[in-house]
C-alpha cells in the first residue's frame, strides 16, 4: 500500500559550487530577540528612503498643500488677528500646526498602501518572514514617519522663508523629529487598523476622509483650545494631534507647553496603535 517515496536524496554541495551558490547554502542565524524590532524598523525605513530616492514627485507635490495653508490661510489670518494666540504672530502660531497636519495627512492614508501591498502579494511575503507582526507594523509605522519627517523639514524651511522665527537649536529639532515620528506612527497605525477592518481601498478612502477633518479641526492646530466649545475641547483632549501640536509649539516657538505630558501621550498612542494594528493585520492575511 505504502508506495515508497521517490524523493531523491538531497543533492550535495557539489553542484552548488558549479553554480557558485555555495555562500547561499547556509541559513542565516537568528539574531537575539531585542535586535528584531530595531532591525525591522531600520529595514522598512530604508525601503521608504530608497523609494523616495527613485521618485521624488511625491515629496514635491505633497509640499503644495502645507505651503498653501501657510501662504493663504496663515497670511490672511495674521491680518485679521481674530485668533488669540498669546502674543505670537498667527503665522508663527500656525506653522507647528501645519507640520503636524501635513504629517497626519500622509500617515492617515498609509493603510491604502497596506491594502495595495496585500493585493499585490507583498504583504503576504512580509508576513512569512521571521518578523513578529508587531515588529512588522512598527517598521511600517516608522517608515511612514520618514515621509512625514521630510514633509516637516519642507514646512520648516517654508515657514522660515515666510519670516517665522523658529528655533534652530539642534536638541529642540531632535525633539520635533521625535514628536513627528511618534504621531506619524500613531496615525499610520490608526490607518492600518482601519484597513484591517474595512479591507478595501475604497472604504478606507471614505473612512480616512471622514476622520481627517474632525481630527484636524478638533485639535489646537489652527486655534487654541480655549476658544473651542466644551464638546470640541473634549475631542481635543483625546486627540493625539493636539498633544503633538502642543509639543511642536513648545519646542519650535518656546511657548508654554506640557512637553512631558505631550510625549507621554504620544508614546502611549503609538504603542496602542501598534498593538491594535498588529492584532488586525491578520485579517489582511486571509
Amino acid at each position: 500500500m505504502s508506495a515508497a517515496p521517490a524523493g531523491r536524496p538531497p543533492v550535495s554541495a557539489e553542484p552548488a559550487a558549479a553554480l557558485g551558490l555555495a555562500p547561499l547554502l547556509t541559513t542565516p542565524r537568528a539574531r537575539p530577540g531585542w535586535w528584531v524590532l530595531p532591525a525591522r524598523v531600520g529595514a522598512m525605513c530604508l525601503v521608504e528612503l530608497q523609494k523616495l530616492r527613485h521618485d521624488r514627485t511625491e515629496l514635491y507635490t505633497r509640499a503644495v498643500q502645507p505651503a498653501l495653508w501657510l501662504l493663504i490661510f496663515g497670511e490672511t489670518f495674521t491680518r485679521i488677528r481674530a485668533i488669540p494666540t498669546g502674543g505670537v504672530p498667527y503665522l508663527d502660531y500656525l506653522a507647528p500646526g501645519i507640520i503636524a497636519q501635513s504629517a497626519m495627512f500622509i500617515a492617515i492614508f498609509y493603510g491604502i498602501m497596506i491594502i495595495w501591498e496585500r493585493d499585490s502579494g507583498v504583504l503576504t511575503k512580509l508576513l512569512v518572514t521571521p518578523t513578529p507582526r508587531a515588529a512588522l507594523v512598527a517598521g511600517k509605522a516608522f517608515a511612514s514617519g520618514v515621509k512625514s519627517l521630510m514633509q516637516a523639514a519642507v514646512v520648516l524651511v517654508l515657514a522660515t522663508l515666510l519670516g517665522v522665527a523658529l528655533t534652530w537649536n539642534p536638541l529642540r529639532l531632535l525633539g520635533v523629529a521625535a514628536a513627528v515620528l511618534l504621531a506619524s506612527a500613531f496615525f499610520s497605525c490608526l490607518s492600518m487598523s482601519i484597513a484591517g477592518i474595512v479591507l478595501t481601498r475604497d472604504r478606507l478612502m471614505g473612512v480616512g476622509q471622514a476622520i481627517t477633518m474632525p481630527l484636524f479641526f478638533g485639535s489646537n492646530a489652527l486655534y487654541p483650545v480655549d476658544v473651542m466649545p466644551d464638546w470640541l475641547r473634549a475631542v481635543s483632549a483625546v486627540n493625539p494631534l493636539s498633544y503633538q501640536v502642543d509639543a511642536l509649539r513648545g519646542l519650535l516657538l518656546g511657548t508654554p507647553s506640557h512637553l512631558l505630558l505631550d510625549f507621554l501621550v504620544l508614546l502611549a498612542a503609538a504603542a496602542a496603535g501598534i498593538t491594535a494594528a498588529s492584532c488586525l493585520l491578520g485579517r489582511l492575511a486571509r
Partner: peptide, 25 residues
C-alpha cells in the same frame, strides 16, 4: 513565492532582494 507578483515595482531588483536578506538577518 505567492501567486501574485510580489516584487516591489518601485525598488530595483537588487533592493528587492536586499530587503529580504535584511528581514532574514
Amino acid at each position: 513565492v505567492p501567486q501574485q507578483l510580489s516584487a516591489d515595482a518601485s525598488l530595483t531588483g537588487r533592493e528587492n532582494v536586499a530587503l529580504f536578506a535584511r528581514l532574514f538577518d
